[in-house]
Design a protein around this nucleic acid. Structure first.
Ligand SMILES: [Mn+2]
Ligand SMILES: [Mn+2]
Ligand SMILES: [Mn+2]
Ligand SMILES: [Mn+2]
Lengths: 224, 224
DNA sequence: ACAAATTTTTAGACTGGTCTAAATTTGATC
DNA sequence: GATCAAATTTAGACCAGTCTAAAAATTTGT
């Protein structure tokens, strides 16, 4: 008794999944969802009733919502597809990392298990997408990224750039113009007390300043 | 003033395009469309009004319908995407030729000109899809295939297998089990008057009989 | 603890895409 | 040319997904 999940429903499930991780709370509110999807709250309420009916979410009126196991599996599969397609677009079709999100938003709804499995293999079973986000495996398991934003490390020293918090086109293009790519080594030489900017060397290049806003949106690991 | 064309509308335009070529008539009837799309005739009439409103078809009530230039461009672009994705699935992901149609039915609606252009290049700008159907180029130009079904050649001799009329999974699988692939050489050794079956050698293999039904659904060119 | 502000739900409406049943048009046949 | 069958359109309904406006519940602040 396989229930059919529409494209719209998939987007709601993905939004709930994303928001619950973003705010590290299990309950997601109607307004959070309506903001995220650019829908009105009333519209969201209607959909929540339908998703609840289909046992994809636990919904208590006025109390917010969380995914059931079935809902979580569905959401994570959409995320898996999204990220795999982004890898395809960048690695195989030479798109830039700031150009792929909108296309992946469409491709993530293509429905074929065989296709995902073969695409995954074709791409070499990648673990991360072009933005450093982890790709859930076929069983829905996902490497939790323990990286934290650069500005939360209050220390000088060597870091590896492993991902971004902000995924907007403008931010990604900004990083490109700075000359920063996933995997680069960052040497923090100074932390400026005045404006909390960071003086940083990318790989072996000249040093430059990262604003605190930039530093707060790039995820790094301490380099071993 | 770019009008938005929905997935459903794209499917109607493609159906009209396909049917007008299938029957070599410029006017397509409501019932032909409703049969092809498994919709009721009343539903089709509603949609024809909407497509006409959007200047995608010429529609005169009771008189059938044909595509405007804009409608034709839209339809042919969907066909181009469908066939390019089929090439991708077979050439890059190693799907069999009988497994790709349903997935391509979904992928053909992904909307990104840049994506199609890059996919085309990635695939080596193929001229034909895995079933031998011609792929329209970026300007909507399409090689007209002059091949005709094997059973319409009433002569013995050498032919090249270039395409199929029937695209069903069962027929394609049948050809595979016969051992027949696009590009194979067929040597017609006998045409049986009793049941109009064909005694044929594929490449240099043992000869076998093709029923008239099979012979009527495989497109061949006389081998030079 | 209560009033005000905020959040959420309900009520009612609209569009796109579908259906069934009934009416209309076309065109074939006598 | 009138009659009848088939094709097509119209009328009226339904569902998914969206909206606005109003009502209800919850949270916040004094
Ligand atoms: Mn993305
Ligand atoms: Mn990504
Ligand atoms: Mn196909
Ligand atoms: Mn094909």
């Amino acid at each position: 008794m396989r229930v059919i999940i529409s494209l719209t429903e998939e987007n709601y499930l993905k939004a709930i999944y994303t928001l619950s991780h973003l705010f590290e709370e299990s309950e997601v509110s109607t307004n959070q969802i309506s903001d995220h999807l650019n829908n009105k709250a009333a519209t969201v309420t209607d959909m929540l009733k339908r998703l609840s009916e289909k046992k994809l979410i636990h919904y208590i009126p006025y109390q917010g919502v969380k995914l059931t196991e079935k809902g979580r599996q569905t959401a994570i599969k959409v995320v898996r597809k999204h990220r795999l397609w982004e890898v395809f677009l960048v690695d195989k079709l030479q798109f830039k990392w700031d150009e792929v999100h909108e296309i992946a938003e469409q491709l993530e709804h293509i429905n074929s298990d065989e296709l995902i499995q073969r695409l995954d293999k074709f791409l070499g079973k990648p673990k991360f997408d072009p933005h450093g986000d982890p790709i859930p495996d076929a069983n829905g398991q996902l490497n939790i990224v323990k990286a934290i934003p650069l500005n939360q490390h209050k220390i000088k020293g060597l870091f590896t750039f492993v991902g971004v918090c902000e995924h907007s086109k403008t931010f990604l293009q900004h990083l490109t113009s700075i000359g920063l790519k996933i995997g680069d080594t960052l040497k923090v030489e100074e932390i400026n007390e005045f404006d909390n900017s960071f003086k940083v060397k990318i790989n072996k290049n000249n040093s430059q300043f990262f604003s605190n806003k930039v530093a707060s949106n790039i995820l790094v690991e301490i380099k071993k």
